[in-house]
Amino acid sequence: MCLKFVVIVLISFSTTAFSSNVEYDGWVNINLQHSLTFSDKPVFTDRGNVTIQSLRTGTAVVQQKPLTQSDRVKLRDLSATNEFYQLKSTVTLADGSEISFLSTVKACMLVESELNDILSVSLDYSGRVIAITLAVASTSTCEGAVVPIDKLKEFSTSVFVRHTENGPTPDTATYIQKLEREREAKERGDVKDNRSFLAKYWMYIIPVIILMVITSATNPEGAGAAR
């Protein structure tokens, strides 16, 4: 009875956890700000907004401002000095709360990709944003390519929503049912011991052998006479 109750509880818990992971949905707004001068205390300016209309499907709308001539020069200079481009992403959730994430990439990688970047938004099992990371779409290293400044007009950003993946679920119900069957079989006396004679009685045989060895070692004359 106790085992059956445990099985029911575990099955109910697993069903609830799975449902909460699958059925959630909602939206978030992400305000993007960037720093075009690398320092310990970066100054961030507005870059644009990303609205994820459905967390389940990952549908997103991206609105970003074209870079001014001054911003393009700063970004090119940041690339030339091999510094980092910094992006601050501030998430506004449906309940009005906010949380910010900071991400960086090499400015030269961003420039050489002609501002084609990827924004990855990671969610926990309840649909809450737990991380936002920036990556460059077309290159993973700086190759020293010279990019004309008129190619740095506007960001082309792809947004990917990453859901927390469920790990393998242990088959608890089957295991408990197996224990229940084994317990019932023992109570009925259906379980047979198929072990060998030595496996069954080794704890009795070994002491006898040890005693015989000790007796022979302490009485060598008797052993010689017997021969």
Results as ranks from 00 to 15, higher is better:
66 P>V: 06
60 A>Q: 01
220 P>C: 02
160 F>T: 15
197 F>N: 01
223 A>M: 11
56 R>Y: 02
159 V>A: 05
184 E>W: 09
144 G>L: 05
10 L>I: 09
142 C>F: 02
185 A>W: 08
117 D>T: 01
79 S>W: 06
194 N>E: 09
8 I>N: 06
30 I>Q: 01
157 T>W: 03
27 W>R: 03
80 A>G: 11
114 E>P: 02
215 T>V: 12
220 P>H: 01
21 N>S: 12
90 T>S: 15
56 R>D: 02
107 A>K: 03
101 F>Y: 15
116 N>A: 05
44 F>K: 03
75 L>G: 08
156 S>K: 14
221 E>W: 06
169 T>V: 14
130 I>D: 02
153 K>V: 05
18 F>P: 00
24 Y>Q: 02
181 R>I: 11
200 K>Q: 12
55 L>M: 05
222 G>H: 13
146 V>W: 02
191 V>F: 05
174 T>Q: 14
219 N>T: 13
213 V>P: 03
16 T>W: 13
38 F>L: 02
80 A>D: 14
109 M>Y: 01
22 V>G: 03
133 T>N: 14
206 I>F: 14
141 T>F: 07
192 K>I: 03
70 S>R: 11
132 I>S: 09
227 R>S: 06
113 S>F: 00
71 D>W: 05
194 N>V: 00
4 K>T: 09
67 L>C: 08
41 K>I: 09
171 D>A: 13
9 V>I: 14
52 I>T: 00
9 V>C: 10
110 L>W: 05
159 V>T: 10
57 T>G: 04
99 I>V: 14
38 F>M: 04
166 N>A: 14
199 A>W: 09
159 V>F: 05
169 T>L: 11
37 T>R: 10
200 K>H: 02
79 S>T: 09
203 M>V: 13
108 C>N: 13
11 I>R: 12
95 D>Q: 08
165 E>N: 12
38 F>I: 01
146 V>R: 05
149 I>D: 07
102 L>P: 01
169 T>A: 13
63 Q>C: 06
34 H>I: 07
38 F>Q: 08
